[in-house]
Amino acid sequence: MSRRRSRIDVQEEDTELNMTPMLDVVFILLIFFIVTTVFVKPAGIEPTKPFADEDKEWNPTILIAVNEIDEIWIADQPYEVNEIRPILQSMKDETPEATAIIIGDREASSGVIWEIQDMVQDLEIQTRVSTK
């Protein structure tokens, strides 16, 4: 009786899969995604970007979009120029190394873009103006 049981045990042990290599791969994937993930809140709109040749790649964490009627969109919410300073300030406090991008519509007012640019610069956030 006891002999038989022990033989079954041995068989079960043999059919068990070796998980270790898969675990290794899964861990490497996990670490890759943790390291590369930046939590970017989408602006909420996609303006028609102006065209430029001399643009450089930029990986922002704060997206500020301006549409053709000069509404400023941050994290799915529309704002006016005079409302966004505290929002940007809190985003800066959250992640001090935050970088921003101003995604202005082709037909947005130049003045609004500059007001945002000056404000962001005043908060010491590195920023660029998005082009395609």
Partner: peptide, 27 residues
Amino acid sequence: LDIVFIMLIFFIVTATFLNETGLDFTR
């Protein structure tokens, strides 16, 4: 393993690969 898989799936789903290009208007 269950937890690791759940974390993996979470990070895969939330990963946003944005490729923005821009001009430097910094004064």
